[in-house]
Structure formats: structure tokens, C-alpha cells
Amino acid sequence: MKKLLSGSLLVILTLSLNAQDKYFTKTGNISFNSKTALENIEARHKSVTCVVDTKAGNIAFAILMKGFEFEKALMQEHFNENYVESNKFPKAEFKGEILNNAEINYSKNGNYSVKVKGKLAMHGETNDTEAMGTMIVKDGKIQVNSIFNILLSDYKIEIPKVVSDKVSNTVNIDVRCSLEPLKI
């Protein structure tokens, strides 16, 4: 009986320790823009899911493609219907690791620059991606910021010739997520 008690105590302990290792949000922000001389396309997403496991040094993002909001309704329609085909491929996901995780002290307030490497899956294609970013640890919360570029051609998102001077193949992505401790 004693052993069982101590065992379950251990279990609870590990559980609670686990819980402090993980941070998450479901209301993260990701925006992107594609700039050409003729047209500037911008969209914002306000319900990005992000999870960080500080112990293992893993980070993951999930995003519903339909949630991107554009300034022009027609751009939004074309984005969903013609480019990312959000009915066919509703989600984009990134799973990766924080390469310099050991340098980050999650229990101390501070700004840390991070390097993340992983796989970005979108439009039925998965590619290795690397990005630089910052993690701001403040009072038990983590702010994750990163700006990086992707190429639409890597994800087999075609740009028709007629609009090739309006839609850039390089898309600039801006991630801003504020994570809170995950309580299991």
C-alpha cells in the first residue's frame, strides 16, 4: 500500500512537472504578405494554435486555411478557391524543434533569439523549413515571434501567367503567438 501511494505520488509529480514544460495558445496571430509592384496582398489569421514543449525543445503550429482574412473579399475567394484549395487541404501544420533550446532559460524573464527547424505541411506538400525568431519569456508566459519567407512553388501553389506580375512566388510570413502554461 505504501508503495502504491508513493507510486501515485510520483505519478502526480511527473504529471505536474510535465504540465509546466508545455505552453500553448489557440489565438495566435499569423499574417502574410506578397508584394509586387502592382499589387500588395495581405491576410491575417487570429486563431493559430501553437504548442511549445520547453523540456524537449519542440514547437508545433496548426492553422485552418479558411481563417485567413483579406482586405478584399475577392482575394479571399481566390486564395481559398484557386490557390491553397482550402476545401481539399483545410489545414497547415508546422512541427519542429528549437535548435538552441538549451540556451533558453524558461524560468527567467528575458529575450532569447531562437532557431527553429522542422517540417511545414501545406496544400498537400511537406517541406523542411528553417526560421529565426525570438522568444520573450515574461512572468511565466512566452511570446513567440518570427518572420520568414516561403516559396509558393515549394508547395505546388500555382500562379497563373496572367497574374504573375501581381502575385509573388515569395510570401513573407509573420508569426506572433503569446503562449500560456498548458495545464493538463
Partner: peptide
């Protein structure tokens, strides 16, 4: 002891599974 072992084992399993897919955690 056996039940304790299984319990711990199960816990270990579930936590390692979580590590593989963070998104499923939510």
C-alpha cells in the same frame, strides 16, 4: 507491484506519445 509498474508504464507511454505530437495534446 505489478499494477504500479503498469500504471507507470502507461503513464510513460502516454507522455512519450504526447512528445511526438504536441498538437494532439490540446
Amino acid at each position: 507491484k505489478l499494477s504500479q509498474f503498469f500504471f507507470l508504464f502507461f503513464l510513460f507511454l502516454s507522455s512519450s506519445a504526447q512528445d511526438n505530437d504536441l498538437l494532439k495534446l490540446l
